[in-house]
Structures are given as C-alpha cells and as structure tokens.
Write a protein that binds this DNA or RNA. Structure first.
Lengths: 110, 110
DNA sequence: TTGACAAATAGATACTTGTCTATATTATGA
DNA sequence: TCATAATATAGACAAGTATCTATTTGTCAA
C-alpha cells in the first residue's frame, strides 16, 4: 500500500500514456472490470496485438495492473494511481486551487 | 466566472494538449507569470514560431489565456481550467477515490 | 508613411506513434 | 508429448506531430 503510492511522477509521461483514444477506451473498459485481452479486444474494435501494445504502455505507466492466471492475464485499472497522478498534475500547475480543491462528486463509470 | 467553468470536457483532447515536454515547460513558465512570446522563447530553448505553435495548441485547449496589449500578447496559465480538467479526469477514471479525494498540499511552482 | 518589432502562418522535414499481419512464447489439456 | 489457446513480440507502413526557416500580418514610433 505504501509502495503503491510512492513513485516518481513524470507529468509528461503520464499525459502521454493517456493521450490516446484507444487507450482511454481500454481504461474505461477496465475501470471496474478485471478483463483479459480477449475480452477487451472485441469491445474496442482494434486487433489483439494492438490491444496488447496499448496495455503494455498503460502497464509501464502504472495505470493498469496485470494479473496472470494460467494462460490468461487479467487487466484492471489502477484507480489509486490515477487519482494520485491527477492530484499531482493539479498540484504542479495549479497548487493554490489544488490545496482547497475537493473534487466534485461524480458517480458515472462503474 | 460561470462561463469559464462550464465546458465540454474531452479527456483525450486534454491529455494530448499537455502530452508534450515543450508545452509543459511553457505551462510551467506561465504558471504565475504573464509572459509574452518573446519572453517565453529564450527560456524554453526552441524557436519563436515553435513557441507560437505550442501556445496556439494550449490556447485552443483553454489551458492558457492570451491578452493582447498593442503588439505584444501576454500569455498566462488558466489554472482554474487545469484544476477542473484534472478533477474531471479523476472523476472519470476513479470516481470512488475522487469523491473523497482532497488534494495534498503542495506549494511549489509560483 | 515608413522602418522596426512582435507574433502568427506557411511549408518542408524528420521523428514519433498507432495500426496491421505474421510469428514467437507460454500454458493447458488430451 | 503434441495440438491448441492466450498473449506478447517483431517488423512494416501510414498518419500524426514537433521542429525549423522563410514569410506575412499587425502595431507602434519616428
């Protein structure tokens, strides 16, 4: 738990990781779902290697968690990491607001 | 004030706008400074047209505000917009955390 | 009105990246 | 052990983008 929240935050790397429509679709699918590559692929509309490729980018950025089970790998969104990254981004470019900002309630997604 | 906070949030467009090192350098320079293109250029280490190009991208994304004064244009970071975008990003991909998240104090930057 | 300065635009080029097909790797069950 | 299924990797190609130089547009002051 401690280890999971301490990491070098690179705002450019974070932004690049999420700056793609296909990756954000994958992120949305994995938001509250543990899904395999085979399950994700038909929902996104690109080939299986393309999904694997994007999952690798998201994994390297720490934005998804991969759980191998036999010959399948389950992916899920690392929501804690995303929260922290968004918070640090905010703190980096808008610290005054960040101090008092309590994020608006939003209940869509999962 | 009302108008400034109501806008269509496109998470991919926001991420693409900030997904570049040069643009983030410009954002950092404009963080609490009102600066002209001529003032920004030497601090960033790219040509004046390149700076203008990136400022146009940031302006279209609503992330900087341009104030023309005579033949100079002052740019400053739209921190309110950045706060809102980060909050919505968080709410989109990590709503549970977002509800309770109060961003950590951070006072670097300006 | 003309010369000079600030910024934006146009066009060219190189680099990056997203996608595909083909193939390799890893694991399972017969 | 071998065939099959799930995923990852390799390589090629096309599209996007960051940068530059050259030029244009807009503004001010002499």
């Amino acid at each position: 738990m401690i280890e999971s929240t301490i990491f070098m935050f690179d705002a450019v790397a974070f932004a690049k990781a999420i700056a793609d429509e296909t990756r954000q679709k994958i992120m949305a699918e994995c938001c509250c779902n543990r899904l395999t590559v085979s399950q994700i692929t038909p929902r996104i509309g690109v080939s299986q290697p393309t999904v694997s490729h994007h999952l690798a980018i998201l994994r390297e950025a720490g934005l998804v968690i991969a759980d191998r089970e036999g010959r399948e790998t389950y992916y899920s969104l690392n929501q804690e990491r995303i929260t922290v990254c968004c918070g640090r981004l905010m703190a980096q470019f808008a610290p005054q607001q960040a101090i008092t900002q309590t994020v608006t309630k939003n209940l869509e997604c999962c």
